[in-house]
């Protein structure tokens, strides 16, 4: 007799059920139920934002090297659970080949951003030669709490490609899984959980995008909203983002990977300090 898995959500490093008690069934091609998934509520979003905000200070202040190691650890954990993801992907309708490719790409993506963690700063920051006696530099800092809607057409890769650059850059995330294909998101939470990612850095909710995305867009303590284009919903979300001038980042479908996905979720901070100018000594040698 197989032990079936209860698919719960992931908030603040714990796996609660939705506070609403609601669920929705995920069915396979033959029409039989493969899981009852949490239909998360706006209150779950708010709880997740609180957890993400609490985690932001610690995560953003970790060394870049350490964040890279943790992302690499996530890749290791995902590799170890490969079979589980393959099974879930095929259950949700992928072919075996497509599933194998998706899992491999997801692992590679985590390794890719693990490597970026201590490098993007050097590429994107600058020392600014101001015309006065000041030392002036601009460096990147994470935006904060990111609301994120996973790509809808895939169960795993579409969330990894949006999530990895965000946490690589020191942000914390509240992520809504693919509405129709949510299983891998929940299992991915288990990967996160066993990879030394502090609780609250990644929070994963399952449910209706039309319910969760507007709640994230309207939340005054979310700093940015990231999604692939959701069609009609894009404008509604953009309008809701205005109340606290949330950065609203909408990618076209089929997210790739690269430095711009990291820098899109960074603020540029410029720091000035005077340079002492006394005496006439100059250093020519």
């Amino acid at each position: 007799m197989e032990i079936l898995k209860t698919y719960k959500i992931y908030i603040g490093g714990a796996f609660p059920r939705t506070e609403s008690g609601r669920y929705y069934p995920i069915v396979d091609a033959s029409g039989s139920t493969i899981a009852n998934v949490c239909l998360s509520s706006r209150k779950d979003v708010r709880n997740a934002v609180v957890a993400a905000r609490k985690a932001f200070g610690g995560w953003s202040e970790k060394t870049a090297f350490n964040r890279g190691q943790i992302l690499y650890r996530m890749a290791e954990m995902l590799e170890g659970r490969k079979l589980q993801f393959l099974e879930e992907l095929t259950k949700q309708g992928s072919s075996k080949e497509a599933a194998a490719q998706e899992v491999q790409e997801s692992i590679d993506c985590l390794v890719y951003y693990a490597g970026w963690a201590d490098k993007y700063q050097q590429i994107a920051s600058s020392i600014n030669p101001v015309s006065s006696s000041h030392f002036n530099f601009s460096a990147l800092e994470p935006m904060g709490v990111i609301g994120m809607i996973a790509a809808q057409e895939t169960s795993l890769i579409g969330l990894v490609k949006l999530l990895a650059p965000a946490i690589c850059g020191g942000n914390t995330v509240v992520l809504a899984a693919s509405e129709a294909l949510p299983l891998c998101a929940v299992t991915f939470a288990e990967v996160v959980h066993s990879s030394d990612v502090p609780g609250g850095v990644v929070n994963i909710l399952t449910g209706k995008v039309s319910e969760l995305a507007p709640a994230m867009a309207a939340h005054m303590d979310v700093n940015a909203l990231v999604s692939e284009s959701l069609g009609e919903l894009d404008k509604t979300l953009a309008l809701a983002c205005v109340d606290n001038l949330k950065r609203n980042i909408v990618y076209q479908q089929g997210t790739t990977q690269g430095l711009p996905y990291i820098t899109a979720l960074q603020e540029v901070k410029t720091t000035w300090h005077p340079i002492e100018q006394i005496g006439g000594a100059s250093s020519s040698y």
Binding site: N128, S132, N136, K269, T270, T271, W272, P274
Partner: peptide
């Protein structure tokens, strides 16, 4: 959490120096 931080100085501006805000 601010886009420009002046340490031991204030209100300095320069064309080479990026300027702009966090949050609202």
């Amino acid at each position: 959490r601010a886009g420009v931080v002046w340490a031991n100085t204030y209100n300095k501006f320069d064309p080479v120096s990026p300027f702009g805000g966090y949050k609202e």
